[in-house]
Every structure is written in structure tokens, then in C-alpha cells.
Write a protein that binds this DNA or RNA. Structure first.
Lengths: 179, 179
DNA sequence: CGCGACATGTAAGCAGTTACATGATTAT
DNA sequence: ATAATCATGTAACTGCTTACATGTCGCG
């Protein structure tokens, strides 16, 4: 599906940047729904350049260090806009090792069962706290044509998802204890 | 991480079955959190047999068709039980093409924005309806030592997750329309 | 001067998907 | 008969992870 391709095009459509900057974006803003290591990003940038969807100019940091500042081309913008319009069918529910483990709950000892759930709940509570802190940057709904708008919508979705995950895990723990 | 390995061991720990049966299990019961094609299952079964974690006997369907009925070995049970106990750190939030697309909402036309959200909501509503129908099979909480117990917990989680996803998408649509 | 961040690449290997390939059984 | 399902395998390819590999810049 070449999704990384479009993630990169989308980011470069917002602003020109280097491979390293892209990597940082994947680690921060896109972290909740996409990721990519530099070992995947650099070859992809090379490929996109060959395909004529992006281009770069050499910029100098300090005295000698060369970095490549990538810019999206017109062809790149067109490819990206087409991708935005595509009507995708829902992909399969993502794989989840914890839920797989829990599916086999009856094979666990009662102690392991409780321990697994509690540990997992703690981790999700931490993630939720982190997300809530991130969303403090939005004091109001951003304008629909600002790049913050999408960020706002997905962040809201991430918070809601984590809240539900925590509620579910708590409910599982209650069931273990209650019956 | 060899997760497929443990998924197969877990299923064979519940009951002996063929590669084809395993495939069907991935399509039905495990569908909400794991998947595997037969092209991945058969080589894995071969590998697990070589590792001594499972064994098989040939069974005959009809007059000539040979099928391999796999059984978990003692070593297999031990490997599986160790895996159940492991304290895993939370994996990264799974990739999600729709959320990536929505992150770039400001680059969409207002029509595309609304269309994408509505189409996605409809698909999740269908998935939710399907899950709710599945969970009708549980009139009460199954006993903690029955294989149904894990099934019940993850199904409850799946329903809660889909409900939240639908709520989130509806909220996004309301924001689009409201401002 | 040393450390963490900046910056860019390649190689090996694993997990998973799609396609290729074959044949028997069962229900209509 | 014929189509859907049962049943088992391999091959090519894509996407991604981990490890290897190198060098500069800015701050204390």
C-alpha cells in the first residue's frame, strides 16, 4: 500500500524538511498512528526522489555538514491529494499481543491472570496521562484549514481510545475479583 | 517475537486440530486481535514439529485424503505457559491508515473531509453490530477456567473499543458541521 | 575534550501478504 | 456434474526491525 510514501508526502506538503526531521515527526506528532525508523525513511526518500514526487537541495549546517532539505513537487502534491480522496475499506483490526494472551486467560493461574491485567492497566494509565498532557496545547478547536486541525482530531481519538482501554481493563479486573 | 508460534500453541493447548482448523480459528475467534494465512500457518507447524513443541498423527477423511491432526507436546505446554507469564512492555500504538489520513485533514477539501469520516463511521458501525451479535452467545460471565472466559473478556473489549471509535468519529463529524 | 543530538546511509533477517499450485470431499 | 469447502503445501515480494557504519555540531 506504500503508506510510508504518503505519510512522508503529507509531512513535506506541510513544510520542507530533512530525513532527520521526518524521523522526529514520526516519533512525536505521528506517534499515535504511524511510525518509521530512519533506516526505512532514507531509502524511501531516495525512491520518492527518483519517482519525481519530491526534490532536495543541499543545506549546510555549521561549516561542512551537508543535509538534504526535501521539498514536495507538483507531481508529489497531486499524488498525495489523490491518496487523501481514496475510499479505503476498513483494514482488519490490528494485531494485539495482550488481547491474544488474555484470550488464553483460562490457561493462566488466577495470580498470573490478575497480574497481567494490572500491569497492563498501569501502562495504559501512563499512556493516557501522557496523551492528556499533550492535548493541553489545544485550548480550543483549531481552524479546519490549519495543520493543527488533524492533529487535534487524532489526539482526541487517542485520548478516548486510551480511556476506553483503561475502563475495559478495570472491568476485567473487577470480574476476576468479583466472582 | 514469534507470536504466531504461541497463538498456535495456545489453540492446540485447548484442543488438537489440523492446520486448516487453525486457519478457521484465526478467521473467527481470534479475528479481533490476531490473524494468519494458511501460507504462514503450514510452515510454522512444520517448524514447531521440528522444535518438538507439537506432534501430529495422520487422519483420513473419506477414503484417501490425509490430514495432519496436531497435538501439543509437554515441551509445548511448558513453552506456552512461560509465554503466558511473561511481563511484556506495551507495544507501540498500532498503525492506523485512517488516523494518518485524518491527521492531514487540513489538506482535504471540506467535502472529502466529511465524506471520509462518514464512510469510516458506517464501516465501524457495521463492525460494532457484528460484534454485538457475536456477544449474544454469552448470557452470563463464563467460569474463569473455561476456554470461553478469555473469549468473553476480549469480545467485551472489542465491543467497547468499537463503541468508542464510533463515538469519536461522530464527534469529529459534529465538529466539522458545527463550526 | 567529551557527550548528546544532528545527520545519513547500508545489510541482514523476520513477519506477513499475495500468488502459484494441487487435489479430495460434500452438498446441491 | 459442479461448486463450495476441506486440505496442504511453496515462492516471490513488501514492509519493517535490528544492527552495522560513519561523521559533524553545539554545549558545558
Amino acid at each position: 500500500m506504500r503508506t510510508l510514501k504518503y505519510a512522508i508526502l503529507g509531512l513535506l506538503n506541510q513544510q520542507q524538511m530533512t530525513g532527520y526531521d521526518l524521523m522526529k515527526q514520526f516519533e512525536s506528532a505521528l506517534n499515535e498512528f504511524w511510525s518509521a525508523n530512519h533506516s526505512q525513511i532514507y531509502p524511501e526518500l531516495k525512491k520518492l526522489t527518483e519517482e519525481g514526487l519530491i526534490s532536495y537541495e543541499i543545506a549546510i549546517s555549521g561549516t561542512v555538514l551537508e543535509k538534504k532539505l526535501y521539498t514536495i513537487t507538483l507531481a508529489g502534491k497531486q499524488a498525495f491529494e489523490e491518496w487523501l480522496k481514496k475510499e479505503e475499506v476498513l483494514d482488519a483490526t490490528p494485531k494485539d499481543v495482550f488481547r491474544l494472551r488474555l484470550f488464553f486467560a483460562s490457561a493462566m493461574t488466577p495470580q498470573t491472570r490478575l497480574q497481567q491485567l494490572q500491569l497492563h492497566l498501569e501502562q495504559h494509565q501512563q499512556r493516557l496521562a501522557h496523551l492528556k498532557k499533550n492535548s493541553e496545547k489545544f485550548s480550543e478547536v483549531p481552524a479546519q484549514d490549519s495543520t493543527d486541525f488533524g492533529d487535534y482530531l487524532v489526539l482526541m481519538g487517542a485520548v478516548m481510545r486510551e480511556e476506553t482501554t483503561c475502563n475495559w481493563l478495570q472491568k476485567c479486573i473487577d470480574i476476576l475479583k468479583g466472582s
